[in-house]
């Protein structure tokens, strides 16, 4: 049996991707099972989904606890050790990243491959929705799932022209995925930053939700408090010099502040993934 864990973000299509893998395996003559994380999904919040593939009907009904493969759809989450944790020995991590696999700060008895799924998605779909874009790369790493099977499955979920675009993205990632390397550090660092996911109640830190973040031009700012009052998270602090300042742990990057600023003193800037 092959067990797969998918890391993504609410709205990126990780759950659909898990179903496409399951359908692809079935197209290839295998049995499969796609499991969403139980509970609620919030747009922007990190989440996980799971897949099992076997040559007999899968009877296990539990989450995947020690996967053979870990696939990450999000460039930011790709930099987090969480995606490489509790893998089977020699397990494979496929990360959406512009970087080389050896540049990712991931440790353990694992092998790593990277593909720039965001770049591929923007090129083929016009939007950074990376779920199908990364699946081609996955077929290359996982001999049990064929590209043909994935293509067939993609058309089941996205018929017609949208399917063509998604298939093109999958093919591109099949071509562009890097070779596998073995992780240099076998021992993961002790202090692992937890990825905060959805749920109910107050959260500690949602900085990981942000793909864009507000950059405030204090010269242009007229101190009208419009951005401050409309922020859903109280993530803009009103400072002593009558200007807003982002509270990093609280901003989810929705962009309401920039949209409402009457003098356009706030710009939403794509958060740079740092090595």
């Amino acid at each position: 049996m092959i067990e797969i864990r998918l890391h993504g973000r609410g709205g990126q299509g990780a759950v659909t991707a898990s179903r496409i893998i399951a359908a692809a395996a079935f197209e290839d003559g295998l049995y499969s099972q796609a499991i969403p994380m139980y509970g609620t999904e919030r747009r922007g919040a990190p989440l996980t989904a799971y897949v099992r593939i076997d040559n007999v009907r899968v009877r296990e009904r539990e989450l995947v606890h020690t996967p053979d493969y870990s696939i990450c759809f999000d460039e930011f989450i790709s930099m987090n050790q969480t995606i490489a944790n509790s893998m089977k020995p020699g397990g494979i991590v496929l990360a959406n990243s512009k970087f080389k696999p050896e540049e990712l700060p991931l440790a353990g008895d694992i092998k790593i491959a990277c593909v720039d799924a965001t770049g591929i998605a923007i090129k083929h779909l016009g939007r950074p929705i990376t779920n199908t874009a990364i699946l081609g790369a996955f077929c290359k790493l996982c001999p049990e799932v064929s590209l043909k099977g994935v293509e067939k499955a993609i058309y089941k979920y996205f018929p017609g022209r949208v399917g063509d675009m998604n298939v093109a993205a999958a093919r591109a990632s099949y071509e562009q995925v890097t070779d596998l390397i073995t992780a240099k550090n076998k021992e993961p660092p002790k202090q692992v930053e937890e990825i905060v996911s959805g749920g109910y109640g107050a959260l500690k830190d949602v900085s990981g939700w942000r793909v864009f973040e507000p950059v405030i031009d204090e010269e242009k700012c007229i101190g009208c408090k419009t951005c401050w009052i409309y922020c859903p998270e109280a993530a803009l602090e009103w400072t002593a010099n009558n200007k807003p300042a982002m509270i990093s742990r609280a901003c989810k990057g929705c962009g309401v502040c920039a949209n409402e600023c009457p003098v356009k003193a706030i710009e939403m800037v794509r958060v740079q993934v740092k090595k």
Binding site: R42, R43, P232, E233, A234, A235, K252
Partner: peptide, 28 residues
């Protein structure tokens, strides 16, 4: 706007989606 209290009555950040109108309503 000047009369709007600076203090918050909520414990943030919350667990809503990005740009949630209900979160704004609760905060206000």
């Amino acid at each position: 706007r000047a009369q709007v209290p600076l203090e918050e009555g909520i414990i943030f950040p919350g667990s809503t989606c990005q740009g949630c109108g209900a979160a704004m309503a609760a905060r206000l």
